[in-house]
Design a protein around this nucleic acid. Sequence first.
DNA 1: GTCTATAGAAGGATAGAC
DNA 2: GTCTATCCTTCTATAGAC
Lengths: 213, 213
Amino acid sequence: MVATALAVPAQPGTDRRRRIVHAAASLIMAQGYGATSMDAVARAAGVSKATLYAHFGAKAQLFMTIVAEECARHGNGAGAGFGVAAVPDALDAMGHAYLTLLFSDNAIAMYRVVMAEAHRFPELGQAFFDAAPRRIFARFGEWARARQAEGALDEAALPETMAEHFFALLRTSGFLRRLMALPPAPDGPEIDAMVAGAVHVFMRAYATPRTGG
Amino acid sequence: MVATALAVPAQPGTDRRRRIVHAAASLIMAQGYGATSMDAVARAAGVSKATLYAHFGAKAQLFMTIVAEECARHGNGAGAGFGVAAVPDALDAMGHAYLTLLFSDNAIAMYRVVMAEAHRFPELGQAFFDAAPRRIFARFGEWARARQAEGALDEAALPETMAEHFFALLRTSGFLRRLMALPPAPDGPEIDAMVAGAVHVFMRAYATPRTGG
DNA sequence: GTCTATAGAAGGATAGAC
DNA sequence: GTCTATCCTTCTATAGAC
């Protein structure tokens, strides 16, 4: 997934560090934190255990690093659909972007791991929530506020509430099923239907007669 | 929580078995499956480890027993609000029942544990999903179908879709925050607001002019 | 059925050489 | 910075006495 080759060799340790993080991320997202041994990480990264500890000091610190890096990647993927003009089209684009991200193997694995370890690493849940869902909700809230100013969305509603409801409508039981590892994972047509349903309900609840689309 | 005293003493081993299950459930829901040792379970239950293995054979089997018993308890708490006549009042009652259950410490702990271990115990996720969310959705679907027949809910919509949307609207980010152990846990007034918002959106999407309330 | 004691394996972390 | 080899702890599961 992540490129390990660089034009410039840089510090020899930098490449090793990346290999460690990548290997540890794969293992922890696949097996969970507790089930992943530092032995296994060292083996998968092709380094010795002592090197692991030279870089990260402890298993918990390596774990926190991984979550922080994944959070940064997910937070960046939150910006699709905001340029579309018509309200239903924009909702459709944002819904697809959100569900595609949310149902990805990486995102589901992150949710699972963070939920499982949140109370053993208290700052972890907050960091993940602020980096991923909260950022997406905030951007939607700004978008909704602008549409309210145009008269396209009900001005009596709070943008934050509309954001909550839109994304909640997308997290149907398909999200629960995915978190519980129940097959089948939602495919393209099913995601289309989920998005269409959410947009339909949202429009009925919050669109005005002047709404475009 | 669970009564341990019975009028009839029954077999002496039955009481020990209950003590074991109760102790193991508390520990596993508090710390997770991997972090709970059989030593700790034995200590908390006041029995020896050998007794544990005499009853359950292996840690995994004890775990499956606990999940099955919790599922049964949660499935039974799914029937509130169906007797109320007016549609918005019924939705309000069902919403409160659902969120009160969903935000309880036991339910959150169960979601967390099942999600964390679902891919190591494949039948676990299915059992939990069928016993808890699926049963609740099905009952709501029946209720919605009856209201459609009365002309109180849009007959163009599928009852299953309405169930998905109603409960999804209740699982706002408060549910995510709770799963990630982020304080504060939603209190009474906040739950009232969540339910009111969900009912409002649902009514706008699916109510007909003939809807009572 | 229940206990004490222990086997056997695995994991996190470190010492010391290079 | 990196490796090999190892210590110490903790875990699951069992053997054998009562």
